[in-house]
């Protein structure tokens, strides 16, 4: 098996900002282990094969640096769970991001 452990899945859940329950951890770790085990078959493919990330034929698709209408402040905040002074109100932020 791909030996994805319960701890690995717990770590993935943290990285992905999912507060998964212990019960979920049990189910997910076995399922994800099985799935990763199956998809790991791609490992057979030789390294010298070039990767394909996209199937778009074109390159250098650029936008002209010209102003376009923005949303009104009201429209921008229309879906906000909380807003204040024209800004999105969010719970206190810890840390500095990256």
């Amino acid at each position: 098996m791909s030996d994805i452990t319960r701890d690995d899945v717990a770590h993935l859940a943290r990285l992905a900002r999912l507060a998964v329950s212990d019960e979920e951890l049990d189910v997910f770790s076995s399922q994800i282990d099985a799935i990763v085990d199956t998809v790991s078959r791609v490992g057979e493919i030789p390294d010298d094969v070039p990767p394909t990330a996209q199937v778009v034929p074109q390159t250098n698709v650029l936008r002209r640096d010209v102003r376009e209408p923005s949303l009104s402040n009201a429209a921008a905040l229309s879906g906000a769970p909380a807003a204040e002074e024209g800004r999105f109100r969010v719970p206190r932020i810890l840390g500095e991001g990256a």
Binding site: L12, L15, R17, L18, V20, F28, Q31, L94
Partner: peptide, 29 residues
């Protein structure tokens, strides 16, 4: 009480179904 980061995790846990969580974690891996 909860900081933004915790609210993110609680919301995503409550808001996403099992298959979505599974795929998010597989992709993260």
């Amino acid at each position: 009480e909860h900081a933004a980061d915790e609210v993110m995790s609680l919301t995503r846990e409550a808001g996403f179904g099992a298959e979505v969580k599974r795929r998010i974690m597989i992709g993260t891996h």
